[in-house]
Design a protein around this nucleic acid. Sequence first.
DNA 1: CTGAAAGCGCTAACAC
DNA 2: GTGTTAGCGCTTTCAG
Lengths: 339, 339
Amino acid sequence: MPPKRPTIARIARDLGVSTATVSRALSGRGYVRDEVVTRIRARARELNYPLRDETVGSRVLLVASHAALLDLQRSQYTLHVLEGLRGRAGELGIEVEVLGYGHPAEIARLPETYGGVEGGLIGIILMTVDDDTIALARSLPCAVVLLNDDDPLMTIDSVAPCNRSAAALAASHLKALGHSRIVFLTRPGRRTIARRLEGVRDELGPALGPDRILEVDDWTSDAARIRIRRALGDDPGFTAVIAAADILAAGAIVGIQETGRTVPGDISVIGIDGLPQGEFLSPALTTIVIPMRRIGEEALTLIQQTARRRLFAEPAIPRKIELGCALVERASTGPVRTG
Amino acid sequence: MPPKRPTIARIARDLGVSTATVSRALSGRGYVRDEVVTRIRARARELNYPLRDETVGSRVLLVASHAALLDLQRSQYTLHVLEGLRGRAGELGIEVEVLGYGHPAEIARLPETYGGVEGGLIGIILMTVDDDTIALARSLPCAVVLLNDDDPLMTIDSVAPCNRSAAALAASHLKALGHSRIVFLTRPGRRTIARRLEGVRDELGPALGPDRILEVDDWTSDAARIRIRRALGDDPGFTAVIAAADILAAGAIVGIQETGRTVPGDISVIGIDGLPQGEFLSPALTTIVIPMRRIGEEALTLIQQTARRRLFAEPAIPRKIELGCALVERASTGPVRTG
DNA sequence: CTGAAAGCGCTAACAC
DNA sequence: GTGTTAGCGCTTTCAG
């Protein structure tokens, strides 16, 4: 027999109030004296009463730097993430306010500007922000989750794709096709991208020497095209390219073709992102798809949970959630040319 | 106004069955024809009917290698994780069977041996296993979660402490005390421990040269004691030690004291784990506490969710959950000696 | 702000 | 296996 579940009536009896009051206190709807609310929530926690995430507020604030919102490559990705977040919000009846911001210090004033927890604010989702902002966010008086990023000291919750394993998967795919001389085409800078490099390293080990890392300084296909052509000028010395993002993969394909070589006949190319338009490249891009919509949805779920934990004064243990990515094999990768 | 929630009556009406049948189908209790169950669950998913995790089964199998179960250092840690898992299981009325196993290949037969999903098996939790076992676990016909480990290709769910940030936190603490010449005392081998090295690197950068990584070949305080004494023989060249585990920190403290130096007067020592006995060392150990009980609890929550997703044929996106760790400052670390 | 009581959604017992 | 029905737990309404 399963242990009998705690009921709202039990809590009411223990505390000498009506079941209606307990119901109001736990759901956050209707008026209950603060002191009574506190006692009821404490008792609920003791009895392990199952608490609904839905009752912690009705609005979330999504904050992204203006740079991130305008950035072409990332806004593609960002759009899909936002779509997932908005979709889930619609289902749950939660309002999402999107806010671009310029200066990190503005973060501190956000909760009160937007009504605070008392005003129905569930919390703040920070998307693709810089480390200064993360540091400031640590002391915010509401739930905070990082989206598409993480906190190196793990004091803030976060949701992101597992960039490391995404890249490892790309490398693993090429290895399975017989490739061993593989270059990694990337735009260094962000921590998320550094994780992709680590993933490639996990699979390739010392085979990925410094000369096998091709860097560009912008997230454009043209930068990638030019960089690849330069690398191909000399004896290429590689048979496959892992691009840190689909947009770079697109440029790499063009660059390779411009030198009279074929993809994947001479050189295989794989991307990471899984943007829909990869399908329409020639050849169609093999890539690692990031579950972008899911990441947006998960951010909302996580911030609700975190807000609930705050509300019920549970000890806060930050958590990092990473979602797995999957290989979509199309036409831009093939077996290594032998002989 | 929030969108009106779907009800069991709505599903019943849509499908032309009684509410009782829908209730049975969704909860898994009582008899309903398989074909009807499938239709009901599909419709529930479409309507976004909120589904309970509790109804996916009543037993989980926890599997650990004999080695892991016997290993002194890790069984400490393991014991606490298990306690958390058992505690949560008790609350939920779930039975946990613990199984030591020897050979990876045995894994494949486990689900049917233990009754399968039809027999109430929620899934299998794999604790501290090797990569061969992880590879085999990918094709198991039930929910699987890795505990205290992760899948490099992210095809399996996992719950673990964030080893990387735990180590970063240790390094960050020492830096804040003025230390810059810091060694990392470790027993290489497992991936989780490699993550701790990465975390130290994140904070210390090139200051952590190869000569600053002290390796031992066993998880014993005595191995750590001897290794530290050897490092101290020459001009030490460091003012602080980060130990990859509390047990090594304990040995490091003794080793330092045996050479006539003081902790933390001459050299600071910080551990990672947060085992209770650290408090009783002399000096009491400053350490990074891993929320061991919570990790056990979380593994159970995750396997329920995963099992539910399988049951309702939701697209499986594996997730990795890492919990944040916290600094507990006791007496074994102090400001760097100046001059 | 709170309680009494009505109402709704879900489950469990029972009949077939 | 499935529907009917009684009953339980939670929320909502309304009166104070």
